[in-house]
Amino acid sequence: MRALIVVHEHITEPGHVGERLAERGWDLTVLRVVSKERFHSPDVVFDFPEPQGWDMIVSMGAPWSVYDERTIGSWIGGEIALVRRAHELGIPVLGICFGAQVLATATGGFVEPAPRPEIGWTEIDSDDPAFVASGPWLEWHYDRCVPPPGAVELARTAVGPQAFRLGRSLGLQFHPEATTEMIRGWLFEGGADQCERHGVDPAALLDRTIALQDEAGERARALVDAFLDRVASV
């Protein structure tokens, strides 16, 4: 079983999600769109592969907006086309934060600015905690998904949907993959300033990440299992 994991920049990795997929026997290929050197000028030229031959597509998070054509217009259309074609072919797609927004856009939904950012460890309102646990989950986003017609919303906060299912695909607005090392990287690459602008203490965020690391990892493992057993295998 082969999974194509689309990583958008140099900090975010498959993390807890990738670890559990590998434990479940998946062969992971990581495709990185924007190099470290182009992080602040991400308008790179990138050719996405066709989805045939892969058994799953995973689209990870990113610090940009799906609709920001000026910043990532050189490649975002290619990723949306990849996810749309995979979904049409019945290839499971797991979209995480930015990846969930790609999934929504590719399947007839859309993305819009959220009424306020969500940054930090957050409890969510889940319709099925045995599938998508209530958390806390790591949030870090400024936009929100409007799921496509036919999607089933599984969880939410006051800001917007947090999980939706469409056929064999699952979109998650939060970050089950997040590790302490990733959060350190996000804070270093401008995230600390973002936190302070929005009233979040970056040191406290990192301390809570460290404290929750093992617990969050177990939640992520359970969520990956639920996706594989209840969504991707249907």
Rank of each mutant, 00 (worst) to 15 (best):
I76Q: 04
I91D: 05
G160I: 06
E112W: 05
R156P: 04
E123L: 13
P149I: 06
I72N: 13
T122D: 02
I76G: 04
R168K: 15
C97S: 13
T122P: 00
A62V: 01
A100P: 13
S169Y: 07
V83F: 12
V146K: 07
R156T: 04
Q173L: 02
T107F: 04
L170N: 03
S59C: 13
F174G: 09
V102T: 08
G160E: 06
R168V: 14
P148L: 00
A106W: 07
G171F: 01
C97R: 10
T107G: 08
F131K: 07
E139D: 00
G167M: 03
V111A: 03
I96W: 04
T157W: 02
E118S: 15
P117I: 01
T122F: 02
L154I: 13
P113D: 05
W137Q: 05
T71E: 15
T71Q: 13
V66M: 01
D143F: 05
I96G: 01
R144S: 12
F131C: 04
G99H: 00
V58Y: 09
R168I: 00
S74H: 09
H87Q: 14
A104W: 08
S169I: 07
C145K: 00
S59N: 12
S169R: 08
A163G: 13
E139C: 01
H141K: 01
R84W: 03
A133S: 15
T107E: 11
R165K: 09
L103S: 00
G61D: 09
F131D: 06
G73C: 09
A158V: 07
I124C: 03
M60Y: 04
G108V: 01
Q162C: 08
F131R: 10
G73F: 11
P136H: 07
G61M: 00
P147M: 09
P148H: 00
Q101L: 08
W64S: 02
V93M: 11
E79S: 11
D127Y: 12
V93K: 12
A100S: 15
G73P: 08
W75F: 15
E139F: 02
G171N: 07
S65Q: 11
P113G: 00
R84G: 10
H175Y: 10
T107D: 07
L170Q: 07
H175M: 08
A130D: 15
E69D: 14
A158K: 04
A86Q: 12
L166Q: 12
M60R: 10
V93S: 10
A104N: 11
R165Q: 15
F174L: 11
P63E: 09
V152A: 13
E112Q: 11
E79V: 13
A106H: 12
S74P: 08
P113I: 05
V146T: 07
H141S: 00
I76D: 05
S134G: 15
